[in-house]
Amino acid sequence: MKRIRVIPVLLVNNRKLVKTIKFGAETYVGDPVNAIKIFNDKEVDELILLDISATKNKQEPNFELIEQAAGECFMPLGYGGGITHIDQIKRILYSGVEKVVINSSIATNPALITEASKAFGAQAIVASIDLKKSLFGGYAAYTHSGTKKVKMGLVEYAKYVEELGAGEIMVYSIDRDGTYKGFDVEITGKIAEQVSIPVIASGGARNIDDFSDVVINGHASAVAAGSMFVFTGKHRAVLISYPNQKELKKNLYEKL
């Protein structure tokens, strides 16, 4: 039986837990540390916490929040948002976080990835490639919460972040974020086939069948989801959930 990592992604805006649709419209979800405690109790495989306001507000990572989060996580934790300097990465990792997620700094300071990868190991560095499909069907990567377009082609960009020293790539579909339309399996596969590091599929997850789809057909090494784990029902009522081991075995691991 093969297990793959199923990772809740939590978004924080000015210390409030929120969930976006297509990186835009935000719904207030609750208190991040409280949510993290619940996810820890549900024995999630791993957790990713992204501060979507830090870069926008030109703020440093909220180290107090990160320390609190790390103290509640008896599983691996990744943190992203507002990371511009190696000292910040050191402080984050030394507070008990396993991985940092880098997005905007890939564009503004690519040397940071190489430096951090050498200092802390590639396994600690996740590059988030946020992508959108254009009207003409081509894809482009973005930084700065989907506002700045990357000139390089998508696959070339994925190889570039691998060469810089990233140990994992999170392929995050902006178009599908919060939409429950399923992962963008095709583009996840195109990237996963061209890099030798693990790819985390993100954006659009609706149910557990989407997980096996993107692993089998999109060669993802791990899957991430936001809305699916913080909302329930068509009115998106806040309810934190996570499949139990029985469900994961039956509907995911045994299909792989």
Partner: peptide
Amino acid sequence: KLKIPHMGWTD
């Protein structure tokens, strides 16, 4: 098609 490092939960 297994990737290295082995990263994740294993029995």
